[in-house]
Nucleic acid binder design. Structure first.
Lengths: 165, 165
DNA sequence: GTTACTGCAAACGATTTGCAAGTGG
DNA sequence: CCACTTGCAAATCGTTTGCAGTAAC
């Protein structure tokens, strides 16, 4: 299953490189394979580690950045910038998903909602050719709701300030 | 109209500061006012410039960052990280909007779609209390579509690579 | 008067860039 | 063999932090 996807995205990359007369370097293909072996969100760091440890194929930071940029351009990867960190994600055949982000603790959860997907696809655009979306829904997760209730119950002179430490 | 909103958000800020025993500094209120005087997206830079030039009230970078973080926490401001730049936006009573982003030229357009808003509000969540969303729809804008058609028509050995200069 | 807030400058971390060496076509 | 890619290290950029002075309460 996943191997199917890997083969498909590899073909997309190959086609693009040939069409545009770019080089088919082992780095590019190995990085693509590694990306499609990661589960969910990952950082550049983690990708580099996987390449070094599991693939025995260390790649420089610069090349990681270059290749990720290429894959993003090809829409084989999406990039999220949460709070402080940047996370990447393989996105072929998964262009369309929603992230629930808790504004208290920063926890990110993925959700799928066909209703939302349909509504976005139906959304009228003036000659704009849609081919994917990212949705971030902000709010308070259940455990933070509980914390807040407990906190307010205690009286509100507590100094719950910026730093949550 | 806009003055109404300004008054409302000012009250929200005041209430928060009093409740949490934080100080009501002129910086905080002036920054809030400036934020709600900006049109659409703005950068930290632009906000600082407005404060300096139009308000005659220069504020340090550190304070801008601190205050924006506070306003984001209060959901009076949202922060977008596009490609390379970070943009902020006043968002009271405007929690819900969609951005169309062209993956070729990077142009960002705002769109409003009641269908999408409804679908997201109806989206089921497991005890997650939603209070706003941001939607990024990726695709190709009309002028880039035209460019591409012209480009492919000319023959595809042209080296249209990374740098668009 | 106390303590939080501000401004400054230094520190920091993530990303980009310049250049020499390597390698795909 | 040419020039695109890579790797390295230095440069750059946005953001955070530490500290001393200032002002809110």
């Amino acid at each position: 299953m996943r191997e199917n996807i890997k083969a498909t995205v590899k073909n997309i990359l190959t086609a693009y490189l040939e069409l545009n007369k770019h080089r088919k370097t082992p780095e590019r293909f190995t990085i693509l394979d590694a990306v499609y072996s990661m589960d969910g969100h990952f950082s550049l760091e983690e990708l580099g580690d996987k390449l070094t440890n599991e693939y025995n194929f260390p790649v420089s930071r610069a090349t990681l950045y270059n290749t990720l940029r290429l894959l993003i351009k090809l829409r084989l990867v999406v990039c999220h910038r949460f709070q402080s960190t940047t996370k990447y994600e393989a996105c072929f055949d998964n262009n369309s998903h929603c992230h629930q982000i808790c504004t208290m603790c920063g926890k990110v959860t993925e959700v799928k909602s066909q209703g939302v997907i349909d509504a976005i696809n139906k959304m009228p655009t003036r000659r704009f050719h849609k081919d994917g979306f990212t949705l971030y829904v902000y709010g308070i997760c259940s455990s933070c709701q509980t914390k807040m209730r407990r906190h307010t119950a205690k009286g509100n002179e507590t100094k719950k300030v910026q730093k949550s430490k």
